[in-house]
Every structure is written in structure tokens, then in C-alpha cells.
Amino acid sequence: MTPSTPYNLQHLLLLDIETVPQYQHFEELPEEWKALWADKISKTMPENFSAAEWYPHRAGIMAEFGKIICISTGFFYYDKANRLCFRIKSYHHADEKKLLSEFAQKLESFHQSIPGFHFAGHNIKEFDIPYISRRFLINELPLPGFMQFSGKKPWETNMIDTMQLWKFGDFKNYTSLKLLAACLGIETPKDDMDGSQVKDVYYVEKNMDRIVTYCRKDVVTVAQIILRFLNQPLLPPANIFIAD
């Protein structure tokens, strides 16, 4: 870390999550939850949609009605030749509670190695971290102490959010990961899917490997964006590794 670098790359744990609705179809929800869904989206649903029609479009991004199916993490390190490298590990399981338990073990291990680590990702302050935290509680799992952000001021949280960095103080601006990467000249893989297709790949195709690959690529893209923010060279493919 140089004096001009605001954070140590080796103290970052990058992450990205993929989520889907808890049920494939609105009709599968218990009657009470159908009513709760209708109430939840009553003020934001477009006029030309019914509650049932809007369910597959929005349920997956709401922690009360969705679930996490994949979490990919990544971290920077220097190898014996002093080359900057990046290692990715993904967690996925049909049982969300087991998935979150495995992820919690990873967090604890990383915390033991680097007590002052920071989470890093794109829009993690408003989506990934709150979503994970809510699903921990819904699954009756203890929330790790280093994820206890309630009541903390923005500068007191251990999060590096590339979307927030790109805002430069503009609270109204939203920029997608894909757009930010393009702006910074970072090539992203030409995938045959996007976030809106994850639920169909999960429920219809039942192709978890495809979802994991998609999630991993987002983590790599965030890693490259962080390097661009620090005015450092991008990672070559040979320096990116996937853990079993």
C-alpha cells in the first residue's frame, strides 16, 4: 500500500450475490404471503401489472420474498514472485441456510486472518450486505459482529462500494456494474445472460453452474474496477484463480 492508496488491497473481501424469488410462481405463495406481497408493492407496482404479474420481476430482489442461491467472494494477494493475484471462491447450495452457514465460516476465517478487513463490491451498501444480513436473521443464524452496521455512520462501516465511489457525492446517481466497467475501459465477458434471467436459469434450466460462473465474473469485474480507481494495472487472466 502506498501513501496515496486509501485502503490496502489485501484487506478487501470482494463479494457478489445472486438471488431469486422464494417460489417460482406467485400462485405457490401461501395466501397470507400473497396478501403481504400485494401490500409490499402496492405503491411501486406499475399500473399495467397485477401483483401476480409483478412477482417474478421484483420478488427476487426483496429479502422478505427472495432467497440467496449463490455468493461469490474474492481477495487480492501477492504470490512468491510478488505478482498481484486474485482468488475467487463461490458458495451455493439448494438449502439457503447451509449456504449462509458456509459463507459465515469463510467470513470468520477471513476475519481471523485480517481483523480489519473491508467488504467490497458494487452496490453492496444498498443491496448485497443488507440482503445477506436479513437472510441471516430469517434463517435464524447469528449475524457476525463485523456485519453489525445498524446505527453506524456511513464512514464507520467496513465497506468499499464501487457504485458509491463513482457517485463522487452525487446521491441521485445510479450506475450499473456493466456501465461502469465500460466507462473505465474494462472488458467484461460477453455472457449469454443477465441478472433478469437468473430466476429462469435457476428454476427452469436448473443450471446452477451457469449462475455460479455469472456471479464469479461480476466479482472479477469489481476487482478490476477497484484497480482502476487506484490507477493500478488491471489483472491479467493468468493472475486470476478459482478455488475449488
Score class of each variant (00 low, 15 high):
residue 1 M to T: 06
residue 2 T to Y: 01
residue 7 Y to A: 04
residue 9 L to A: 00
residue 9 L to N: 05
residue 12 L to A: 03
residue 12 L to K: 05
residue 13 L to H: 06
residue 17 I to S: 09
residue 18 E to R: 04
residue 19 T to D: 01
residue 21 P to D: 02
residue 22 Q to L: 10
residue 29 L to Q: 03
residue 32 E to F: 05
residue 32 E to G: 04
residue 33 W to E: 09
residue 35 A to N: 11
residue 43 K to I: 09
residue 44 T to K: 14
residue 45 M to N: 09
residue 46 P to T: 01
residue 46 P to S: 01
residue 47 E to V: 04
residue 47 E to R: 07
residue 50 S to T: 08
residue 52 A to E: 07
residue 52 A to D: 02
residue 53 E to R: 14
residue 54 W to E: 10
residue 60 G to V: 01
residue 62 M to G: 00
residue 62 M to C: 04
residue 65 F to D: 02
residue 68 I to C: 10
residue 69 I to Y: 03
residue 69 I to C: 01
residue 78 Y to G: 09
residue 78 Y to Q: 12
residue 82 N to P: 02
residue 82 N to Q: 13
residue 83 R to C: 11
residue 84 L to Y: 09
residue 85 C to R: 12
residue 85 C to V: 06
residue 88 I to W: 05
residue 89 K to T: 07
residue 90 S to H: 01
residue 93 H to E: 09
residue 95 D to R: 07
residue 95 D to N: 13
residue 99 L to R: 07
residue 100 L to E: 04
residue 103 F to E: 06
residue 104 A to L: 09
residue 106 K to P: 00
residue 106 K to V: 00
residue 107 L to Q: 03
residue 110 F to W: 02
residue 110 F to A: 07
residue 115 P to C: 04
residue 116 G to E: 06
residue 117 F to D: 03
residue 120 A to L: 09
residue 120 A to Y: 10
residue 124 I to F: 03
residue 125 K to T: 11
residue 126 E to K: 15
residue 129 I to P: 00
residue 136 F to S: 05
residue 136 F to G: 02
residue 138 I to C: 06
residue 139 N to A: 05
residue 147 M to E: 02
residue 150 S to L: 13
residue 154 P to N: 11
residue 159 M to D: 05
residue 159 M to R: 15
residue 162 T to F: 10
residue 163 M to G: 07
residue 163 M to C: 09
residue 164 Q to K: 13
residue 165 L to N: 12
residue 167 K to N: 03
residue 168 F to T: 12
residue 170 D to E: 02
residue 171 F to C: 10
residue 177 L to K: 13
residue 178 K to L: 11
residue 179 L to G: 11
residue 181 A to F: 08
residue 182 A to C: 10
residue 182 A to E: 14
residue 184 L to H: 10
residue 187 E to P: 12
residue 188 T to L: 13
residue 188 T to C: 14
residue 189 P to F: 12
residue 189 P to H: 13
residue 191 D to C: 15
residue 194 D to M: 09
residue 194 D to N: 15
residue 195 G to E: 06
residue 199 K to F: 05
residue 202 Y to F: 14
residue 203 Y to S: 08
residue 206 K to S: 15
residue 210 R to T: 04
residue 211 I to M: 07
residue 215 C to W: 05
residue 215 C to A: 07
residue 221 T to K: 13
residue 222 V to P: 08
residue 223 A to T: 07
residue 224 Q to I: 06
residue 227 L to S: 04
residue 231 N to D: 13
residue 235 L to H: 03
residue 236 P to A: 00
residue 236 P to L: 01
residue 238 A to V: 12
residue 239 N to T: 01
residue 241 F to C: 08
residue 242 I to F: 12
